[in-house]
Simulated scan of single mutants.
Amino acid sequence: MTENKGLPVAGYKSQSDANVALVNANKQAEESILRMLDALGQLPDVDKRWLATGRTEIEKGFMAVNRSIFKPARVRLDTDPITE
Rank of each mutant, 00 (worst) to 15 (best):
G6L: 01
L77Q: 11
P72R: 06
N26G: 14
T53Y: 02
G54Q: 03
D78T: 14
S32F: 13
T56M: 06
R67C: 05
R49L: 12
V23S: 13
L40K: 00
D17L: 05
M63A: 15
R76H: 02
R55G: 08
K5N: 05
K13T: 06
A64F: 00
D78K: 12
A25F: 04
N19G: 08
L43Y: 06
D45M: 10
N66P: 09
E30L: 13
F62P: 04
V23M: 15
S32P: 02
A25G: 10
A64T: 11
P81Q: 02
Q28R: 13
N19R: 10
L7Q: 12
K5L: 10
L37D: 01
T2N: 09
K48E: 07
T53H: 12
R49N: 15
T79D: 00
A18M: 03
I69D: 00
E84T: 10
I82T: 14
V65P: 02
T53F: 04
P81Y: 00
R55V: 07
F70Y: 11
I69H: 02
K48V: 07
A73Y: 01
V65K: 05
Q15V: 14
I33N: 01
I82N: 13
L43I: 05
L34Y: 03
L22N: 08
R55A: 06
G6W: 01
